[in-house]
Amino acid sequence: MIGKSILYPGILTLLLMLAVPAAAEQQAFSEDSIAVIENHYKNEPFLLVMWSIECPPCREELALFSQLKRMGENFNLVLISTDHFSQQDTLNAILVEFGLEGVDSWIFASDSIEKLRYHIDPEWFGEMPRSYFYDTSHHRIAVSGKLTHQTINAWLKDKNT
């Protein structure tokens, strides 16, 4: 059973995560969810990241997000796990471990992996981590592979100018 988030994504900035209690929950990601996410952050930049429990570079990227959070960086982050929804507890534990329990977090709600991937991006073939930097107009830039501090800083600098 997929738990429904009790948190409003609008308050889920990394800065404000400091104030929320340590309870990670994921929303169920279905074919319509990418539109819901994009609509929620309408006119706002955000970083969309696909990851998986079985992806070692994804853990390193979560550690980077954790570090940025401790540094007080403030940006909208959305995590989508492609794992089977039965692994929600494992996912929760990982997010808590990295102090990312308050992040706007989703998990694939169906085992039709290809279909859900296609709705995010038909060009994405499943490599992870896979990230999309959205600007305020929601033009997005796709990046395959582990993000670096420099890449995120460049985006943060750009979105703040």
Binding site: E54, C55, P57, C58, E127, P129, G145
Partner: peptide, 8 residues
């Protein structure tokens, strides 16, 4: 060149 899991 990619620092990721291709799963392929």
């Amino acid at each position: 060149q990619i620092d990721a899991c291709p799963h392929h």
